[in-house]
Amino acid sequence: MRRETLDRLQAARQAGRGVVLLTRLSDGAQHLWPDEALPGTLAEAAQAALDSDRTARLDIEGEAWFVQPHNPPLRLLVVGAVHVAQALAPLGAAMGFAVTIIDPRRAFATAERFAGVSLNHDWPDEALAALAPDSRTAVVTLTHDPKLDDPALDVALKSPAFYIGALGSKRTHAKRVERLREAGHGDAAIARIAAPVGLDIGAVTAPEIALSIMAQVVARRRGR
């Protein structure tokens, strides 16, 4: 791989733009799509690889090609700079997620508590609207506080986020569901919320709860 190709590939991912690397296996010749225009069949395969986030093998005129999508990182948007969030942020990063912690309470969302993590101090609804969750984004609310969690869930439920989780007991969630219904969300929307959040592994400590949440996020991501 030419260094210049690698640098362009990494720059695209950093900019949040998906690109596809196409390699001719006979001699290692490479193209980066869509930066380079490609003939129909290759361009179509590249688009399909990017959309599905899956590699492909292709044979064109006797030449074997490997088609590899390089999407920008998945995103994990966490509302509430609480103890569980401190454990969740490094776990999410380890799973390849770009993690953002959202909390207008500056005493919680400090660089000291979240070293190296992207912090956002806007109100959760404004923050989420600006961050625009897409189908490669997971949203988790952890504050327990309806003033902070509800507006975030409202925005998340109107987005194509692949995972929406909300911390809180069954009782807390039942009340939350009532409020969300009043805000106009129907059964299908409510059913998208993972609550109580996380896989049931009997988690007790903050790191254990973070692990159960991350495991559930990965399960959804992988279609389980």
């Binding site: 260094r3 690698l6 640098d7 590939l9 990494q10 986030d53 390089h70 990182p73 998945l74 390849g96």
Partner: peptide, 14 residues
């Protein structure tokens, strides 16, 4: 494909 092997490769080359 989450681990950023290409970033590591670039850093090593640098």
């Amino acid at each position: 494909m989450t681990e950023d092997i290409l970033a590591t490769a670039a850093a090593w080359a640098d």
